[in-house]
Computed example of a mutant assay.
Amino acid sequence: MSTTTTTAGSTAPTTDARARRLPGTLRLGLVRGGVELLEYVRERDSVIFGFAYPIVMLAIFATVFGDDDPIVADGVTVSFAQYFLPGMVATGVMLSTYQTLAISIAVDRDDGSLKRLRGTPLPATSYFLGKVFLSLTTVLVQTALLLAVAALAFDVPLPDDPARWVTFAWVFVLGTAAGAVCGVAYSSVPRSGRSASAVVVTPLLVLQFTSGVFFSVSQLPDWMIDLSSLFPLKWIAQGMRSVFLPDAFAAAEPSGAWQPGATAAVLAAWLVVALLVGTRTFRWRRHDDG
């Protein structure tokens, strides 16, 4: 270790040596993630409603339609709850990543938190890692609760084929990563924290209706499917259907197949594009603050 000699003859570490002892970006990101998680759980109403939304929607649709309205594809029948589950898993991913990050970052910018953080030694990367850590934690808990309720309350059969869980894992991870980066990039769109909810939630709500989340994709017009195919939610939902539905239901998809390659390519493309856009457009200050 390089040192410098003080006037008293003792040695003190140089600036470079002190810098080497500072926590790394990843460690700071994990610490920041703990702070984000603590702040999140303190907002109990947000936690309850955020976790409850997919579960409540599954319960409502499964109860309204029930066994009287099964979904049939190529001679194979599943309950509406089983067909609806993949869309709710996909929605939960986007709620906990894109929506949570876009709104929370916009609020942090509006109340000056981002500006103050920018003036601290905390690297920007660590701040974003903290947000991603929060999103990953919440989406894992939310998805686990949703699957448990679906299996225990609505008798939805979960996959027993390890290959399907492998598909679930990579769609989940890639969808979560794409949604998180999209949330960071989109957070610069709202002009204030007050308008963030409307600006962020509205397009996601529209996409839920056009991406085969609330309805069977066979009931949607072609132009709507083509439009929704440009966005991640449709592909996350389709990837999840390939996990939780029988293979016969692939014929009900617009392409007549599950398209795992296309799903991976589209989600990866959104991950890269949103990352590039976000690094160029991200704002640490409010729009009216220079």
Rank of each mutant, 00 (worst) to 15 (best):
T3G: 05
T4I: 08
G9S: 05
S10M: 10
S10I: 05
A12E: 15
D16A: 15
R21S: 15
L30N: 13
R32K: 14
Y40R: 10
D45V: 15
I48K: 03
A52G: 08
A52T: 05
P54K: 05
I55G: 02
V56H: 01
M57W: 04
I60E: 06
I60Q: 04
I60L: 12
F65R: 09
D67R: 15
P70E: 05
Y83R: 01
F84D: 13
P86M: 10
G87N: 02
A90R: 00
T91P: 06
G92E: 00
V93Q: 03
V93K: 00
V93Y: 01
T97A: 00
T100H: 12
I105K: 06
A106E: 02
V107L: 12
V107C: 04
D111T: 08
G112C: 00
R116L: 10
R118G: 06
R118E: 08
T120M: 00
A124N: 05
Y127I: 11
K131W: 07
S135P: 02
T137L: 04
V141T: 11
Q142L: 12
A144D: 11
A144G: 11
V149M: 07
V149K: 07
L152D: 11
P157N: 03
P157S: 02
L158W: 05
F168P: 04
V173M: 10
A180W: 07
A180K: 02
V181Q: 09
C182Q: 15
A185C: 06
Y186F: 15
S187R: 13
R191D: 10
R194H: 13
A196W: 12
A196D: 12
V200E: 09
P203W: 08
P203C: 05
P203L: 06
V206S: 06
T210N: 05
S211N: 13
F214H: 10
S216A: 10
Q219T: 15
D222Q: 14
W223S: 10
M224K: 06
S228R: 07
L230P: 03
L230S: 06
K234S: 15
K234V: 08
I236L: 01
M240A: 01
M240W: 03
S242A: 15
P246M: 02
D247F: 02
D247Q: 10
D247T: 09
A248F: 01
A250K: 13
P254A: 03
P254F: 02
S255F: 04
S255C: 01
W258G: 04
Q259E: 15
A265V: 04
V266D: 01
A269S: 14
T281A: 05
W284I: 00
R285C: 00
R285P: 00
D288S: 12
